[in-house]
Design a protein around this nucleic acid. Sequence first.
DNA 1: ATCTTTGCAAACTTTTTGCACCAAT
DNA 2: ATTGGTGCAAAAAGTTTGCAAAGAT
Lengths: 147, 147
Amino acid sequence: MERMDAAIQNLRLSGGRITHARKSVLQALVTARTHVTAEDLLNLVQADSPEIHVSTVYRTLDALEKLGVVDHVHLGHGRAVYHLTDNAHQHIVCERCSSVEEVPSRLFTRLGKDLMDNYHFKVRMNHFAVIGTCRKCLKETERTTSN
Amino acid sequence: MERMDAAIQNLRLSGGRITHARKSVLQALVTARTHVTAEDLLNLVQADSPEIHVSTVYRTLDALEKLGVVDHVHLGHGRAVYHLTDNAHQHIVCERCSSVEEVPSRLFTRLGKDLMDNYHFKVRMNHFAVIGTCRKCLKETERTTSN
DNA sequence: ATCTTTGCAAACTTTTTGCACCAAT
DNA sequence: ATTGGTGCAAAAAGTTTGCAAAGAT
């Protein structure tokens, strides 16, 4: 639970208050471990504390995002997925099945450098989604089409 | 206007009908040249033909996307931007000012290969957005923060 | 004549906001 | 006691859908 503690410390130091709702959302984020939508989080959180409202979840995520504790990526279809900030990975998102896989940053350092050198564009390494087709769906496609 | 003609041909061959609304949307896409939201397109289209409805724009974009003529990417904040399909570039999206810049595919071929080799993940090269901070906003940040 | 596409209005989904109350500091 | 956070309900933003009428083939 170090991540949780760190986040709470962070919140406190920035003048934020440690509320039940915020602890719940953080807890949910920590235990979820995957990339979850706001709705997912709401469900997790409401399992224990049904009184917590969606708007609170959004506001908490907002607050945590401002602290750099949480980050989100937009999937193919608009809804965002949230996860604890972690500079060590990026996301590859399957446009077919919406699955998200993590891949090490290493693969992206070259690209990051190229974009910086050529475009003065600074890639936000933990808000980065590559869209494509995952292994599983790729296989299914091969099976279905004659190609 | 070759792109327009090709798209129309495409539509016709797939059994679709060439309507005023569709021609308008295509025209708007061709002339816009940038990455436009559905709303942008609606405005462009309605300048000439106010009777065309948002839903028609969405449905037309849908149809064109199915033909592979049009593609879309999701910006940081939910709304999608549409553009004519073009395998020669990818997008770098500024999370600060939402600007979209195009960069040549070349920069991504290595990454694409790595992801394929290591994860069997096939990057969809024209549906690919790198999130970060653009040159302009980077400068502003430098000016503002002491860092 | 047929069958797609359109316009409209209404629904839907996801996220945001105003406000009065509540609770953490 | 203060001020930030919460729950609620309602709105906003973006997109989709059912339907009857219009239009392309």
